[in-house]
Structures are given as structure tokens and as C-alpha cells.
Design a protein around this nucleic acid. Structure first.
Lengths: 367, 367
DNA sequence: CCCCCCTATGGAAACGTTTCCATACTGATA
DNA sequence: TATCAGTATGGAAACGTTTCCATAGGGGGG
């Protein structure tokens, strides 16, 4: 590695002072055409590029933003990060990304590290916004920041889905299909204020719609033995007809496990997810879920941070109750006992995009 | 934002010189117990933390790595980035992440920016390693780096799947099922050396196994109208019985489009994907695909960069032909005309995890 | 003709660290 | 007692920029 070509080398090669080089290259301050040429020639010859770190030291600004999320394995966060990163980049900022793996310990530590790196701002999804030490460090230093996916505590901004309201909607959907007893399944329940809010809203909604208080299944390890856990859960709650799963990915895994257990989704067990990832529309039956727009949220949080940095008014975010929508899908249907069409047990009945057996193209291809 | 507490403030508060503060805090050089206490007290009182940028200027090291990938929307890259990031973080390095959105223009530009930020190393997935200007900039500056997913040109290291060999395997799988004419579907074909290698290997494999040269369907826009394009493609190639799709996500979308067109997968059209994303095992029929381990690749590339930085021997990567495996799935089966079991047209026949209708749990729940 | 203002330029300070070097003190050895 | 080794400490340079300030020359207005 070699990169010892500094502004001084350019100045020497061009036969002028460093101040002149800086002025010419940055277009700040006057300079003669002749000097400009000499400087540019020297730059080309030496392949000079400014070092941002000298510049940062002087301007005490790094044009770098810290971005902290639990994981990229969940496409919700991947999309959000991408949205934030694009927005920042368009404004000339780079993004320093860290995943905490839902670990509170490392959450506070990485935030400290980013702080030491003198980032100009933060976009963060913390495990619990109300108690995060990492968030506190950011607050006391008064670094521009915005939460993402977290419920905003007092005096904080956050771009997020209204988890409680969304969960209410799910409860209503279960009610509309005639379910009387349902469950709630979440990963990392303890370390996520989002999962807690969803559960809370769901409990509330069930009460409101006359559904029995939902049974809670909380799993820690990464769905290694989801099938076993699900089986035990269903044996403990034999009259359950539906489960609200706190994210789509886990919901799909749950459907798979249900199948392994010989259950028909949705006839024996309805599943509703959360997030609205695209593959949910590609599977059979399609996944009923809460649709969100993570990329927009990430981008919005980024805009908010930029506005704080620039002293502008922060952008308006969508109304909380418009931050999500319910998407019907084949994985949610009336429980088998409730069915009126006698279809009980009809496994894999197509529930979206039903094949048109006689479609034009098939005829054409039949030879 | 306020953070004007520097080592000088600490020195003043502790009544000593800055050199002593540095020595005490970094544990370098001798110091008296009494001084140590005074310094630590001052630090606590002022809430001092080192600024990495002063340190970087002095040490000409940033403990920051540039990480460039096309997109995070594809879980393959998200996983790889996560793997790389974790490895770097464990070694005390932060990751500066940029997505190029498959745009060559911005690829070179962001690399320049990262270079100016004085990153200590790079992990990159470029659109075409053989011709990337961005990669060249990194090379001439002799910054430690490692490619990821790209085929390695001369004198370059890369952690990647052997795309060509994997595509050969796919061709063989099609042959084994009795397919005689197949197609290849890819997104961003032009701007990805990976897709090109897969195509090339597939063509080669088809020739080798006596399959007609595969028809190529290349789509640019994000599968907006995939169904229409697929329909036109199938009309142009009416005897096609299978398609190799260059990534799993697109493969799932293709299956959906095929269904919309009234086709039965796999009876009318077999699909094989590439990547091995987990949801491929959750859908019905399950997706036949090439399984890779992106997180491992990302982590490996990171290890390689670290070893270059530290002057160690780079880690050994898995043998090219062990970098992937074929996963059978319900989306690949003999073409309908070839079938011997008379099952033609049996839509949605379960192909994995077949429901055990009389499983214990179902009996228990039947009341 | 003097003064002032404008353009062009360079020197030097400042940003926050680390580290080299010098100084001062303490015992211990010769 | 003089010398030496070792510990404890502070001053100052260096890292690569930007920017303030000073200098210098030239032209125009009084």
C-alpha cells in the first residue's frame, strides 16, 4: 500500500504553496489561469486525491453516517438499509453499517465505536428505544439521529410502522374469518420492543373483537427446531385455529412446519405474517400479512437526519395508520369447523392466481 | 452537536501534559499511580473519548473497510455483507457499505470516494472484474482487497462460487430428468460477469449432455412485466420444457408468472434456480437450485483482506467445485411428455414434506 | 502622486492524536 | 562522590487539510 502523495507534493510539483493548491482544487478563492494549469498538471501527473481524513480533522465533519440495525438476514432491514444508504449517498454521505444481531451488549458498544469515529449522524434500530444505553450516548452528545422501526420515546423521532395499530388490524382479520382462539409467535421477543408492541396490540385487539386472549409462543434460537416447538405449542392449545407470526420470514417457516406436522394451512391453521416481503405473494397459499414499506422508512429516516444536520425542517412522515396495510392471502381463511363449503381438508387449494387450465398459451404449447 | 472535549482538556483538568494522558489511556509507556488516577478522574468527569480521526491522521490507518455490493435486495448479498461485517468487526474494523445498484458508473465513483476516505481495505463485488475501473483504482494504490462473487482475474483473489461448474451441474440435472430443450433467464445480464459465466457454463453443459443450445431470455427492468416477457419467450420457444433462472428470487417470480400463464410447474415447465435462499425450501413445489453459502463467502473475503493487512497467509478457501451443491426440488421433474406415471397436469402435487394426513397431532386436535 | 482596493499568492495556525526526544528525579553501583 | 540506569513527565513535531492573515503588485480615482 502506498499513498504518500499529499497536497504538499502537489504544491512542490506545481511550484506554489499548499494554500494555492487547496484554493485551486476546491475553487475557493482567486487564482490565475496559469497557476490553475500548473496545479492541474501536477495533480494529473502525481495522481493526487484529497485525503478525507485531513479534511475531517480540519472541518470536524466526516460526511459519514452510522447505521445500526439488528441484522441483514431479515429483508425488512436489508431494504431499509438500502433505502437509507441511497438517500445518504445522494447527499454526499457514506454509511457505516453495523449489525447487532439483536445483542444489547454489542449494540451499545458499536454505537460507542461509531461515536469515536465522529460520524455526523445516526440511523438506528435499537432493541428497546426506551432503555437503550447506546441511544442515550447519542443523545447526550447531541448527534443528529433518527430511529427506525422503533417506537419513538419522548422527544425522539422515528420512522416506523404503528405496530399496535397493525396488530389490531390482524386481530380484526382473524375475527372477520370467524376465529375464536388464536396464538402469537415471535422470535427474540424480549429484545425487541417491536415484537412486544405487536403482541400488546394483538392482545388488545383480540379482547376488543371477542377473541380469547392469544397464547404466546416465544422462540429464541433461530427456528432450528421450530417444528417441535410448534407441535408442543399446539398440543398445549388444542383449540387454536390461527397464529399471528411477528414476521413474514418466520411465518413462512411456520407454514412449512405446520405442513410437516400434517396440518393444512389454512384449513387447520391460519397464519398471518408481518412485513409484507415479496416472496409472500409467490408461495402457495399466499401469505396473509401486514404490508410495510421498509425502504421508504429507511429513506425517510435518512432524510430526517439530513434535515437535522442542515437545519431544515424534517420531512413529514406518513400518518401512523397509513404506514401499513393488510394484505389478504390464502394462508388466512375461516377455521375448518366454521367452513360452510365442505372443503375441509382440501390441501393446497389454490388461493391466488388460480391456474387457468385452458389459457391460450397452454393450448399453443400442447404439441 | 457538541463534542469539544479533547485530550488537551483532559490534560489541563488532570494538570499534566497531553503526552501523559495519551500514555495513561493507551497503556503505552510508564506512569505513576497518582498520575493515572488524576487522568482517569478527569476523563470520567469530562466524559472524554478519543477521536478516531486525530488518531487516523497520525497513524494513517482508519480501521475502516470499504464494502461494495450491487444491492441488498438480493439476500445473497445481504448475507455476504453480514458475514463480512461480522468478521471485520471481530477484528476491530468497521464497514463502510455502498450499493451500486448494478450501475458501473456509480461503481467507480463510490470506490473513488471510499479511497479518499482512506479505507484500509476493500471487499468488492463489481459488475465485471476484468474491466472494472474501480477495481483498477484499488489495484494501483495497492490497497488490500478481495473480490466477492466475481470470477478472479489474473493476480486477484476472489471468494466466489464456480459459476461455470455450477451451471454444468444444472445442465446435467435437466438431462437426468429427460429435458431436451431448455432456456436461460437472467436479470442484468450485461452488467454481471456472474450471469454471463452461468450462461456460458450452461451452454457448454447442454452441449455436453446433448441438450439443444438454451434459448436466452434477458430482462432489464425489475421483473415488472415478467409474465408478459415469459409468455413471449415461451411462444418463441414452444418446445421448451425447462428454464434455468440465474437467481432464486427471480426463479420464484418466474414460477409465479408461469402459474399466471396457466402452466403447471414442473409438469409443463421445470424451473431451476441459483443461490439456495432459504425460502426456496418453504414453497410448494420446493425450488430446485444450486445451494451456496454467501455468508461464508463474505466472511472468507473479509478474512482474506485482514490477512493481507496483517501480512499473514490468506485463509484457504473451499475447492471451487465444493463451493456449491445441487439441491433437488419439486420445481424440477421430467417434462410432461416424458412422464411415465400418467401424472400429467396434476397441479400442485406436493413434492416435499408431504402432509401426513393421519399424523398424531392432527388426531389430537380433531375435537 | 498618493492612497485604496482588488487580485494573486504564500506562510502559518489550527484541528486531535501519537511519538520522539529532552529533562528531572531517584537510587544504586563503582 | 561521580556516574549510570531507570522511571516519570512534558514539549514539540508530524500527520493532511483549510483558512486566516500578510505581502505584493497593479490599476483607478482623488
Amino acid at each position: 500500500m502506498r499513498q504518500p502523495v499529499t497536497i504538499k507534493d502537489v504544491a512542490q510539483a506545481a511550484g506554489c504553496g499548499v494554500a494555492s493548491v487547496s484554493r485551486v482544487l476546491n475553487g475557493t478563492g482567486p487564482s490565475s489561469a496559469e497557476l490553475r494549469k500548473r496545479v492541474r498538471d501536477a495533480v494529473d501527473e502525481l495522481g493526487f486525491e484529497f485525503s478525507e481524513i485531513g479534511r475531517s480533522l480540519q472541518s470536524s465533519t466526516t460526511r459519514t453516517i452510522g447505521c445500526v440495525v439488528p441484522s441483514l438476514a431479515n429483508p425488512v432491514f436489508a431494504d431499509a438499509v438500502q433505502g437509507a444508504q441511497e438517500t445518504f449517498q445522494a447527499a454526499g454521505y457514506q454509511t457505516l453499517l453495523v449489525c447487532t444481531n439483536y445483542d444489547t451488549e454489542s449494540e451499545v458498544q458499536v454505537i460507542r465505536t461509531l461515536l469515536a469515529k465522529q460520524v455526523d449522524g445516526f440511523v438506528l434500530t435499537v432493541s428497546d428505544a426506551a432503555s437503550s444505553d447506546g441511544l442515550k450516548s447519542v443523545q447526550v452528545r447531541e448527534i443528529p439521529h433518527c430511529l427506525l422501526f422503533n417506537a419513538a420515546p419522548e422527544n425522539e423521532r422515528s420512522w416506523s410502522v404503528d405496530d399496535r395499530a397493525a396488530a389490531l388490524t390482524v386481530a380484526q382479520a382473524f375475527k372477520d374469518e370467524g376465529h375464536k382462539q388464536v396464538g402469537f409467535l415471535a422470535l427474540k421477543f424480549k429484545s425487541s420492543d417491536r415484537a412486544r408492541l405487536r403482541y400488546q396490540g394483538f392482545v388488545e385487539g383480540c379482547a376488543q373483537y371477542g377473541i380469547k386472549e392469544p397464547a404466546l409462543l416465544e422462540i429464541d434460537d433461530d427456528s432450528e427446531n421450530l417444528t417441535t416447538l410448534l407441535q408442543a405449542f399446539l398440543e398445549r392449545n388444542p383449540t387454536l385455529t390461527g397464529i399471528f407470526v411477528s414476521n413474514d420470514f418466520l411465518a413462512l417457516a411456520t407454514i412449512r412446519s405446520a405442513r410437516v406436522l400434517g396440518l393444512n394451512v389454512p384449513a387447520d391453521l391460519s397464519i398471518v405474517g408481518f412485513d409484507g416481503i415479496e416472496v409472500g405473494t409467490m408461495v402457495e397459499p399466499s401469505l396473509a400479512t401486514i404490508v410495510t414499506d421498509p425502504k421508504m422508512l429507511g429513506s425517510g429516516a435518512a432524510e430526517t437526519v439530513l434535515s437535522i444536520i442542515n437545519g431544515n425542517r424534517p420531512p413529514k412522515q406518513p400518518e401512523p395508520d397509513l404506514s401499513f396495510s393488510f394484505r389478504a392471502g390464502g394462508s388466512l381463511a375461516p377455521p375448518a369447523a366454521e367452513r360452510t363449503d365442505g372443503e375441509k381438508g382440501a390441501t393446497f387449494s389454490p388461493s391466488n392466481n388460480p391456474p387457468k387450465k385452458n389459457a391460450k398459451i397452454q393450448l399453443e404449447r400442447s404439441k
